[in-house]
Amino acid sequence: MSTVTASTSSGAGGLRSVGAEAGPSVRVQGVCQSFDRMGPPVLDGVDLTVAPGEFLCLLGASGCGKSTLLNLLAGLAEPTAGTVDVAADRPSLMFQEPALLPWLTAGGNVELALKPRGMRRAQRREESARLLRLVNLEGQSGKRPHELSGGMRQRVALARALAQDSPVLLMDEPFAALDAITRDVLHEELVRVWSTQRLTVVFVTHNVREAVRLAQRVVLMSSRPGRIVREWAVELSQPRAIESPGVGALATEITTELHREISRHAR
């Protein structure tokens, strides 16, 4: 067995600046991750490539290692084996919870992400107002997180993620805690932002319809060990409605495969 190095590229090759078309935005090769040496690895030989500007949904049962993989992409952890290359200095990441800092206003939370970019105060204020406008939260900049609804908080979190100005946006079940109507609205908003900002999105979910509603490509992960087992290209045009027959038909097919995958663990 050959030795594989665990490394995270920090865009040293200039993947980001030398034209996005040059290479993939995300490249994961032979990634394994185990948390304890005794048990089976959580991720075992994951290979994944995401093209610049692509919207990819990573689908899998709860506990299959989606968050683990996303944390590796975000550079929050190092893989046990394999390589992770992301064509961004620091990809932005959205969590399932809005994870807004409660002592800062909506605008303050967005500005916090602008600080490491070395912006001056006035510039930060202007940029955060622009980003809040982008997620349809104009005039809400002075509100504190607890004064906003769950959907609005997630939009502030999206604005904060966009404030990092990273070409790669990672999202870990960001809408799982929202009601269906709010989620519909945010799907539409995310797709709009994705296409106008030309982002590469890796969106983790366990909701099949959500994956088909959003993605250009849906990737299915197996559980224990986590591997990529199958993928589907979704060529329905945007905007799609989550209850449209096209979305429904593909979702049914993927669900069958997901169930088959989960049933393997029944015995």
Partner: peptide, 14 residues
């Protein structure tokens, strides 16, 4: 990669 093309868009988005 399997390919799916839908003709119908269904109801409008919100």
């Amino acid at each position: 990669v399997e390919t799916h093309t839908g003709q119908q868009q269904g109801r409008a988005t919100p």
